[in-house]
Amino acid sequence: MTTEESILNKIQILITNHFETPQKAFEFFDTDSDGKLTKGEIVQLLKDAEISGFLRGIVSTKLIEGYDKNGDDLIDWEEFKAAIAKIKP
């Protein structure tokens, strides 16, 4: 399992165990309710998913780089769904 797969699996476990739906998870971590996850909000999601502190900053940057399709340096719901879709059930 690659590091990316491991991280996505931890995110999936967090979402499955603590939220009814991925959208509820997105809404929970979107603390300012603007419909987008900032790097700080993503770092909190990673912390709750038990991603090590050393990796959180790097991973949040890579998630934004990999899934931010409109170039605003944020992750909106559609981009979040695309990231979640990569997770193996």
Rank of each mutant, 00 (worst) to 15 (best):
Pro89Glu: 13
Ala83Asp: 09
Phe19His: 09
Ala25Ser: 15
Ala82Ser: 15
Thr21Val: 09
Leu63Asn: 02
Ser6His: 13
Ile75Arg: 03
Asp73Gln: 07
Asp76Ala: 14
Asp73Asn: 08
Lys10Gln: 15
Lys62Arg: 15
Ser33Asn: 12
Ile84Ser: 11
Asp72Glu: 13
Tyr67Gly: 07
Gly71Leu: 09
Ala82Gly: 14
Thr21Pro: 10
Gly57Gln: 11
Ile42Val: 15
Lys36Phe: 11
Ala82Pro: 07
Asn9Pro: 05
Ala25Trp: 01
Glu50Val: 01
Thr31Leu: 12
Gly40Ile: 02
Thr16His: 14
Ile11Val: 12
Ala83Trp: 03
Asn70Leu: 01
Asp72Ser: 06
Gln23Gly: 01
Glu78Gln: 14
Asp30Arg: 04
Asp73Phe: 00
Ile13Phe: 10
Ala85Pro: 02
Lys39Trp: 04
Glu4Ile: 08
Asp30Thr: 06
Thr31Lys: 15
Pro89Arg: 00
Gln12Pro: 03
Phe28Asn: 14
Glu50Asn: 12
Ile87Cys: 04
Gln44Ile: 07
Ile11Trp: 03
Ile64Lys: 06
Ala82Arg: 11
Ile11Ala: 01
Pro22Leu: 08
Ile84His: 10
Thr3Glu: 15
Glu20His: 00
Arg56Tyr: 00
Arg56His: 03
Asn17His: 05
Phe19Gln: 11
Asn17Val: 04
Pro22Met: 06
Met1Asp: 13
Lys47Gly: 08
Lys69Leu: 02
Ser33Gly: 07
Trp77Asn: 05
Lys39Tyr: 04
Ala82Phe: 10
Leu37Ala: 08
Leu45Asp: 07
Phe28Val: 10
Thr31Met: 11
Leu74Lys: 12
Leu8Trp: 06
